[in-house]
Structures are given as structure tokens and as C-alpha cells.
Computed example of a mutant assay.
Amino acid sequence: MKCAVLDDYQQVAETMADWQPVSERVEVKVFHNHFESEDELVQAVQDCEIIAIMRERTPFRRQLLERLPQLKLLVTTGMRNASVDMDAASEQGITVCGTRGGGEGTTELTWALILGLARKLVQENASLRAGGPWQSTVGADLYGKRLGLLGLGNIGGKVARIGQAFGMEVTAWSPNLTEERAASAGVKRASSKEEVLETGDFVSIHLVLGERTRGLIGAEELKRMKPTAYLINTSRGPIVDREALLEALRSGTLAGAGLDVYEQEPLPSDDPFRTLPNVLATPHIGYVTEASYRQFYTGIVEDIQAYLDGSPIRILNAKQ
């Protein structure tokens, strides 16, 4: 039986887990490059009964799944993957399994972006390295400022606690946020997303991408933000309207943005998010930490072993 492990960009898949439990029963092929075309991908994995994918790096939509008749087990890292067509997988008899969580990386990266934006670290570091002016910018304070959160789930709640430690006032909103949940986190529950946007000095997004949240932040919403405010998105790119955000950043409607996620990934080499001076951008590395990767790849091996033993674990369905 053949297994393809896709998108191992850092070339660590084989060292982050012990593959011995399945190595005698499965021939594992690890791919380090991202396939730019569906035809190239199909050519590479069409003989594989098992495919393991890392988050949403390679979407598995109906059209692709239909071109892989040998596929029997699809393993995704995490317990949710919006880029997999679960209905199509079910119709083809493909078992889809997930793995345990992803550590604290996204929470930590959120604060790296906030701090980097507030203290203009990229500009100051570049100036220092180039022998430029000594101290060329004036940083923004966190203490006493308002942190607005769109989403107060697992990650949002952790981001809130760190904001409180910095002495920030924290407000939050999500479609299902209750007064009880906000109070338990020591956070003020905003009456609407508009309140979060209008009052936040730093607004950070921690919502799951779905029909209700796709395009949630558009041109009208961005216009409500203070011109001195910063928007941080470590959740999913399509939650924010791309063109509206670009316009807000170019026009100065918004002071800046910290971005780790995009509508298209990898980001094209000529994409303006790579070069706008008021954008601090990272290549979707919120979950890319040693702890996360060890959990993910160990989970992949466990899922494959359980499937081979006839008792699949952590099976996903269309509602996840």
C-alpha cells in the first residue's frame, strides 16, 4: 500500500514522528514541494491509497477526489479542514481522519504580529542593518489601549489573557458569544462587530471560516476602524475582503495589518501584501512549531495504523 505525505515544506515529516509502526505495511512517499497544478498532483499521487495533508496547503475538492480512484484514506492535520470536500469523500468511500490539536503557536504568533506592528520592528531592524538613522519611528503603546477580538474561542481566549497582562482593555464579539463566556474570560462583550471595529486600537480575528464569516470584514467594516488602528488576522484569509483591505492600507484608512493567512496560499510572488510598508506578513506559520508538528505527524501515523488495523480513529464527517 502506498502513502503520500504532501507539502512537507520544512522537510521534517519523517523526523517529527516515529513511522516504524506502519513502515512495514506502507510505502511512504514524502513531497516537499507544493504542486502548482492539479495535473502534476494527480500524476504524483494517483497510485496512492493513503494521502496525508498538512492543514489547507493542498485543497481536496470534488474534482480532485474524483481523479484519485485509488484513494481510500485521507488524513488531515487537526480536526477540521474546510478545504476538504467531505461530501464528495463520503460518496467515494474515502475515510477522512484528523489529528490532535496544534499547540499554542497561533496565539504566540498573534502577539508577535501585534508587537511587531506596534513597535515597527521590521522598519527599525531594516534601518539598523542598513546603517540608517538611529531611531526613526515612534512606537504605539499597548498599555491602556483597547484590544478588540472577533472570536473568543480557544485561541481568542488565550489572546485576551495576554492582552490583559499588557494592561489592555479587552472587548470581544462573535455571533454566538454569551455574556457568561465573556465574563468568564474577564472580557467586555461588545454588542456588535461594529463596536469592536470602531473602538479597537488593535483588532484581532479568531473566528472559524464558514458561510457566516466569509467576507465578514469588508469595505464598510474597515471604514469604521480608527485610522490609527491595526488589524491582525491569524485565522483564515477569506474572513476579510482582500481588495477592501488593500484599499484601506493604501489609503491610510487603516494604520497597518498583521497577516498570516490569505485567500491564495502560497502567496504569489508579486502580491502587494508582500511589499506594502504598513503590512507585517508571515507565510501562514501560526501552527508551524515543533510542538505542533510532533502532534500532527504522530497523529498521522496513529491514524494510518488504526486504519490498517481495521479500526479508524478520529473520523471526520461533513459537519466538522
Rank of each mutant, 00 (worst) to 15 (best):
I232W: 06
I232T: 12
I232C: 11
N233Y: 07
N233T: 05
N233R: 07
N233P: 04
N233L: 06
T234S: 08
S235D: 10
S235T: 09
R236Y: 03
G237E: 01
G237T: 03
G237M: 04
P238V: 05
P238Q: 07
P238W: 01
P238A: 01
P238I: 01
I239T: 07
I239A: 05
I239F: 04
V240E: 05
D241W: 05
D241E: 15
R242W: 09
R242L: 09
E243Y: 07
A244V: 01
A244H: 00
L245K: 00
L245Y: 06
L245G: 02
E247V: 12
A248Q: 05
A248L: 04
L249C: 06
L249I: 08
R250D: 12
T253W: 14
T253Y: 13
L254M: 12
A255C: 09
A255N: 09
A255P: 12
A255E: 10
G256M: 07
A257F: 08
A257R: 06
G258P: 03
G258C: 04
G258L: 03
L259W: 10
L259D: 12
L259C: 11
D260G: 11
D260N: 12
Y262P: 05
Y262H: 08
E263Y: 14
E263W: 15
Q264E: 15
Q264F: 13
Q264D: 14
E265K: 11
E265W: 11
E265Y: 11
E265R: 10
P266C: 11
L267T: 09
L267I: 12
P268R: 09
S269G: 13
S269Y: 14
D270N: 15
D270Q: 13
P272Q: 08
F273R: 04
F273D: 01
F273L: 11
F273W: 04
F273Y: 09
R274Y: 05
R274N: 14
R274K: 15
R274F: 04
T275R: 08
L276Y: 03
L276S: 02
P277V: 01
P277W: 03
N278R: 02
V279F: 00
V279K: 08
V279G: 04
V279Q: 09
L280G: 03
L280F: 12
A281L: 11
A281K: 06
H284V: 01
H284R: 06
I285Q: 09
I285L: 12
I285H: 06
G286R: 07
G286Q: 08
G286A: 07
G286Y: 08
Y287M: 14
Y287I: 15
Y287F: 15
Y287P: 12
V288Y: 13
V288A: 14
V288N: 14
T289H: 01
T289W: 04
E290F: 06
A291N: 12
A291C: 07
A291P: 05
S292L: 05
Y293E: 13
Y293N: 13
R294D: 06
R294Y: 03
Q295R: 15
Q295H: 13
Q295E: 15
Q295G: 12
F296Q: 00
Y297E: 02
Y297K: 07
Y297T: 06
T298D: 01
G299F: 00
G299N: 02
G299Y: 00
I300Y: 00
I300V: 15
V301L: 03
E302H: 10
I304H: 00
I304G: 02
I304P: 05
Q305K: 13
Q305C: 04
Q305H: 13
A306K: 06
A306H: 03
A306I: 06
Y307W: 14
Y307N: 02
L308P: 00
